[in-house]
Amino acid sequence: MKQSKVLNPKTLAEVLSLFEQCGDGARVIAGGQSLVPMISLGLSEPDFLINLSSCDDLFVIKKTRKTINIGAMASVSEILNSSQVINLLPILNFAAKKVATPHVRNFGTLVGNVCHADPSSDLIPALLCLDAQIDLVSKDGKRSVLLSEFITGPYSTTIRGGEVAVSVTCQLDKQSKLASYKKVARRAGDLGIATCAVSLDSHKDCIESAKISVGGYLRKAIRVLDIEKNIVGLPAHEICTFIDGVEKIESIENSILPDGSLTNNYLSATFSRLIRSTLKDALSGK
């Protein structure tokens, strides 16, 4: 039987040096809500688990003048309770409410959720609307990557060996006045078949700026740029008619992942209706 071990470093420096020592068989564990079931099912077989929960500085949700920085150990529940997130990043708050079940929210972390890169993640679409970056640290230094570049496909990212994701940084000036998050799932607490986050600004009934992202049965969560750019400048009341008139949303069509009875047809119709309805909710301040 192979040797396995849980390591409990106290500082980020220790995390990095352990990572170097342990090599490829090491996995970082934060909340463990995705990783532990995968280990139990034999889908992941790490040799070492580097546990971040003893690193105090990773728990922090920190506000600077221009950003909110969410540490690797901040749980979804903590994000839900953070007045800074509630007030300054409502879209993230809306999405966090829809994450799985209270049990999972209490331990699952936002950074862990991003690194797991499940296309059905509730948080990633919201973060995409915020042009969020993930902050990665290795012994060679630090880099920050836009989420849209960090996540490359289902459960895959550009994280490198020896790198630890320490936080996600959201730009405050990217938050718009109107926001909404909606999700289609087969039952309460389940992963989304289709999710949509919308963040909008309007002036005199005209759309000034729009960000729309979707997740679910896609290769990865994406921004729906082709819709975004076409609704800017439109009067708010024309948005639904516009969406109804779009025969195919190219960006979505290109990344749909059909699965059994969830056919292409079903998914494109669902995404299109979901975007329309989320936009409507955002405009009406829901």
């Binding site: 849980v6 409990n8 564990i29 463990g32 809500q33 532990v36 079931p37 139990s40 688990l49 546990n51 929960s53 529940s77 209270p102 049990h103 999972v104 209490n106 331990f107």
Partner: peptide, 15 residues
């Protein structure tokens, strides 16, 4: 765990 509900099957004991 510290007053919060958790699935104990999804937590590693040594953490």
């Amino acid at each position: 765990i510290d007053g919060k509900s958790a699935h104990s099957c999804c937590l590693i004991a040594t953490t």
